[in-house]
């Protein structure tokens, strides 16, 4: 699949944002006053910024409001609804830092739960697609949740949780590649089943339907990014899990360490997300004899 920068930025930033909001909602970084409120602003900026970035790849972004209507069937619609509900639930908790709004711990807990639900709905946009076998597996939601919890715990300075979350993310990442690499073969679609001619004999592309490019070739059959896949995997694994975990352990709970660890984690997440799209093979490629 074509790794559109807007979608990579969207999933990475909003994942980190909702992860961070979940930790804030659970009462990590207790405190009051404008400085503490600024942390909430950061969480909202990441989450909302990511959601806004996702509208950049739309053909008609001015109609994006319509995407809240089909929550009964569409994971993309559910994601939009869940994100808005989460942001509304947590708003009083955030304002509680500035105003005397009383005990809002229960609302914070609810908001934290909805943050994770939002991450889950994001992951299901990809995991639901039977046409992309690499994504169509329970490891995809685990991956997105793993990133949100690891990112959120690093950014909120929850050192011990961050180290455990990073190690879990390490394992989930490794598993996602191991499982993903054999998913296409496992699902078993081939040029023979795509054309239905497989029972007659061995099918080979003789001529494509068109000599020029088209939307399908551009969107679903992206091969450039796979060239450096192995190196990108090492970068993703090291920067999103090992480096931030080491920084947190060695550096302790100081804000420069937290910032550096978060930036490393984001870099690793961007590399992982690039590969997530670039390495995903859509079954329509079978008609073109390419993946």
């Amino acid at each position: 699949m074509h790794p559109a920068p807007s979608v990579i930025v969207f999933t990475v930033l909003s994942g980190l944002g909702f992860g961070f909001l979940a930790f804030l909602g659970l009462g990590a970084l207790p405190g009051h006053g404008p400085w503490h409120f600024a942390l909430w602003v950061l969480g909202y900026a990441l989450a909302v910024g990511g959601l806004l970035a996702s509208t950049f790849h739309l053909g008609n972004p001015q109609r994006a409001w319509r995407a809240f209507s089909q929550w009964r069937t569409s994971w993309l619609s559910r994601e939009g609804c869940a994100a808005v509900v989460t942001l509304i639930l947590l708003a009083p908790v955030a304002l509680g830092d500035l105003l005397p709004l009383g005990d809002l711990r229960l609302l914070g807990l609810l908001g934290a739960a909805m943050s994770l639900v939002t991450i889950f709905t994001t992951s299901m946009i990809y995991a639901q697609l039977k046409t992309v076998p690499r994504w169509n597996h329970p490891v995809t939601p685990l991956l997105f949740l793993g990133y949100a919890i690891a990112g959120g715990s690093i950014l909120s300075g929850e050192g011990r949780i961050a180290v455990v979350a990073c190690l879990i993310l390490f394992l989930v990442l490794a598993a996602s590649w191991r499982i993903g690499d054999r998913r296409f073969a496992e699902v078993g679609q081939s040029i023979g089943s795509a054309t239905g001619l497989g029972d007659l004999g061995k099918v080979r592309v003789f001529e494509r339907g068109h000599t020029a490019g088209n939307y399908l070739l551009h969107e679903m059959m992206f091969v450039v990014g796979r060239k450096h896949a192995d190196r990108l995997r090492i970068i993703a694994l090291a920067f999103s899990t090992l480096v931030p975990a080491a920084l947190v352990v060695l550096g302790g709970p100081h804000w420069p360490v937290v910032v550096l660890a978060t930036l490393c984690h984001i870099l690793g997440a961007l590399a992982q997300r690039w590969l997530f799209f670039a390495q995903a093979e859509h079954v329509v490629g079978l008609y073109y004899g390419m993946r």
Binding site: M1, G59, T131, L216, E219, M220, H282, V284, Y287
Partner: peptide, 13 residues
Amino acid sequence: IGCGLCAWACPYG
């Protein structure tokens, strides 16, 4: 809105 998700969901291009 031109999000393209339906095209992703279609196995047949």
